[in-house]
Amino acid sequence: MAIDAKVDLKKARMTWAMLVGTMTISYLAAKFMGHGSTVSTVVFSIMVVQWLILASQFLHLNVEPKFVWGLWISSVFFVAVLFILSYFDVWNHQGINWCRGAADCVQLNEPKSF
């Protein structure tokens, strides 16, 4: 329950080095290994690691009371809830009882039997 956690500059420089290092890795991976989905998943997992490092070191969440982690985790969780529950309806090209452009469904065509 530290009101003022003592800032350790050596650890801060090390954190900085780790962040810049991981960022360079993702950049080089994207640069030379193309932009396929494997690279993207690697880069996004690196991003999550970067978040955790930055949050625990620079935002010193490792010494902050736990409910601040709870606040952030719940806000990210609510963003995920929005994504999961509205992903099926938004932007999709077709659904159970609808279809989008002329390519997917001819006006007045025979409906697919279910």
Partner: peptide
Amino acid sequence: GALSFIVWAHHQFQAGIDPRMANY
């Protein structure tokens, strides 16, 4: 308070969301 974030689409039952979502 937590539940109120997973309930919203009952305003959109007829608004063209996927019918399976309506059951949820």
